[in-house]
Amino acid sequence: MSIVLENVCYTYSPGTAYEIHALKNINLEIREGQFIGLIGHTGSGKSTLVQHLNGLVKATSGHIYFNGEDIYAQNYDMRRLRGKVGLVFQYPEHQLFEVDVLSDVCFGPKNQGLSREEAEKRAREALRMVGISEEYEKQSPFDLSGGQKRRVAIAGVLAMEPEVLILDEPTAGLDPKGRDEILDQISLLHKERGITVILVSHSMEDVAKYVERIIVMNQGEVMYDDVPREVFRHYKELERVGLAAPQVTYIMHTLKEKGFDVDEDATTIEEAKKTILEAFRKKGSTT
């Protein structure tokens, strides 16, 4: 189970005044079970890239292989692919349309050809995973709060039981509490189900805590593709392209400069706490 991108290029409105080269020669391999953060500034091509992964946008040139099969091959079943690679768009709550929450979540599985009972079973399961309790099932999705709407929309994709889940800025416009809740739930999902998760974001802070691999996009190209701590080492370059490393990275680097023996590669607050305490202990034992 993997997605391989080979020399993928994409141009918006080719041959007009609005021509934009959104993707330039992208080569990537996304392996099964990974939790990946796809980071880039606005207009870096990250949203365009993820729309390629489920065949919504067709590359101007290049190939994409899902489990070894070329998705641009003649008889490739795109609808099946879209069931396997679930894509949650930005502000997914804007696509809700059904009369009640349960029916809306059922939309995806029913399109996959499942029976009403089977679809409802999956929908209930998906709603449980995103933390929407059963009392909301028969409510209109438009009566829910912003954060709840978003979870229902995410459940709508989850109910299709995808092998790869892509979330485009799932935390945009949410308060810090809502943000943490959603990210924690996604993380839990990744652990429980072992599905591949790609988290698209422009904030390193959001993803640093959860992901095992970070892909940084800049102007349609892959700038870095590595584990978080390696990527954050380039925090000065990241700043130059309008991104920033997590605040922890800055604190660690400043402490190091001031002569504390801390590990400047710490990416989360927990790691930072550990290494700072260690540094003080060492200092204490030497003096």
Binding site: R79, L87, H94, F107, G108, N111
Partner: peptide, 13 residues
Amino acid sequence: DKIMKAQIARGAD
């Protein structure tokens, strides 16, 4: 365009 894509991603035809 966006909503269309989002629904296609959920298997709409």
